[in-house]
Amino acid sequence: MTPAATAPSAAPLLDVRGLGMRFSVKGGPFDRLLGRPRREVAAVDGVDLSVAAGETLGLIGESGCGKSTLARAILRLHEPTVGKVTFDGTDVTALGRDELTALRRRMQIVFQDPYASLNPRKSVEQIIALPLRVHGLAKGRAARDRVVETMEAVGLRSAWLSRYPHQFSGGQRQRIGIARALVLNPDFVVCDEPVSALDVSVQAQIIDLLAKLKRELGLTYLFISHDLAVIGHVSDRLAVMYLGSVVETGPTRAVLARPRHPYTQALLSAVPRVEGGGAARIRLAGDLPSPLDPPSGCRFHTRCPLAMPRCKTERPVLRPLGDGTSAACHLTETA
């Protein structure tokens, strides 16, 4: 049995077990009809995660590691191929359409791209009120009041109700996206790279805002980013993903102070630091391997400076290492 990636004392708000997400690369039903073989990509491969109520779990990884796909599988925006997602005791993966719609009131998402995530043909009021209308929660005056209230909570002026997305800056648009996610009063919000597309000074504003909203509304976040410094600041615990799997997880400070997985070490050393210094840079050879044709054994062995013969054949599992951290690396056994 794979040990739980995390072991919070109380039952977690969100619990993900063995989640897998496979895409067939070419062909739809027609190819199936003709019996063509399918090529599959395991975008997410057996991920275990849990998020306790009120905490922020940071999910970090480079592009193509499957972190966004994982988030969408958790919310069932993509149907996961295998595994189980439990939210507050409910098996999300087993829900029918109506029950799922009802649950969406409690699980929301903020997207990365503040330009693509807002419908350009809709006014701010229409965008933020959409969740209310979908769930039949408020109409007319009441809906507008709730929209205004939410706008003010995210730092938007209510005078902007009838404006269109193209009239806003990137940071303001991201606030609109946050308002849309929060208008239903959810418990759990996936923040999918919410600041990656923003300028540094605006990025700080949005990080600040998300922290404030979390405090005031008692939210739980799954915060996805490729930026280790951002994750370091916003998350209580973090999980590092590489090619579809979690390779290391644990309390943020513990992992950043003493990364155990060679990939986490390389990631940490690669971040350019304003203050200079930092650890000596670990150079990783080559690029991310294609998920279509993942390496045998440990998926990181093709780039790992510490790879051993065993890593080519045997896939390491996440192993708890005492201080609440776990890593999937053969080296941690002897360490």
Binding site: L100, T101, I109, Q112, D113, S117, P131, R180
Partner: peptide, 17 residues
């Protein structure tokens, strides 16, 4: 494929909507 369509799905909007 756009995020705003995904956002509408995420709030539970029906396919028709």
């Amino acid at each position: 494929q756009t995020e705003f369509v995904e956002a509408a799905r995420a709030v539970g909007a029906t396919r028709g909507r």
